[in-house]
Design a protein around this nucleic acid. Structure first.
Lengths: 134, 134
DNA sequence: ATACTTGCAAATGATTTGCCAGTGT
DNA sequence: ACACTGGCAAATCATTTGCAAGTAT
């Protein structure tokens, strides 16, 4: 809560509840899922506004896993980059270091600095890839 | 047009106009941009329905470059995979073979079969990456 | 006290869907 | 003829914004 105040935000009950929900979660949640966990003691507009504010402070991040809503998680959940299956929606989160080789390959070829924390690596998971082999 | 009929679709004027617009374009366009090129001689509902139908036949593909609307292009525009800059929106299209090394690295590490034709590689383009170096 | 926030409603952007008159085969 | 489509409107999903009343500092 200190970080919130230091960031120039007031500690309101809607905000505190949202933060608690985010801190209790061990995977990214949508705004709607978060609102449910608040027992309706807020509304979607406020949830989105607060998510944006907390993200500006760097306390949380959000990722887009395919279509569907954005998913939010506390930054302290650890740096994560994602691989998503286009076919079944399965996804895995990995430490950025696991993608360093991929990143440097892309850097050498295209001079792009690839990031898979906001938009994942898309493709086919092992199971779906196998199913399409034939 | 033969491919359309073979696919079980009728060749209607709305459909033909849409196909012409797609075939004249040399980069992916949104449904709205396509409708403009039809001079309003159709409507968004039909455009989306036809885009979906043509995509089912494999005649076109669509890509999501960041937020914003999906972008559609004829498949014959050539196999393309995309790199997108999260910061300035710049993007480049490359032949899949240029990403084969990246793909096999990801395959070895995660057994995922990466595809960057529907969702791009996201990150920072050379210019934006340089600006953040300091 | 007063600036920041909330909850509610309405607006927005992208896309989908229901309906029925119109048209390709 | 008859099923497939088109155009129009309304619905949906995710997210943003306006506003007046409420609250943290």
């Amino acid at each position: 809560m200190a970080a919130v105040r230091d960031g120039g935000l007031r500690v309101t009950s809607a905000r505190r509840l949202l933060i608690e929900a985010l801190w209790e979660a061990d995977e990214p949640l949508s705004a709607e899922e978060l609102l449910e966990r608040l027992g309706g003691r807020s509304d979607l507009g406020s949830v989105y506004r607060n998510l944006e504010a907390l993200e500006r402070l760097g306390l949380i991040r959000h990722v887009h896993l395919g279509h569907g809503p954005g998913l939010y998680a506390r930054s302290s959940l650890g740096p994560r980059e994602y691989l998503l299956c286009d076919s079944c929606g399965a996804h895995i989160a990995v430490d950025p270091s696991e993608l360093d080789e991929v990143r440097s390959l892309i850097r050498r070829r295209f001079a792009y600095e690839a990031r898979f924390n906001h938009f994942p690596v898309a493709g086919l998971c092992p199971k779906c890839a196998k199913e399409r082999e034939r």
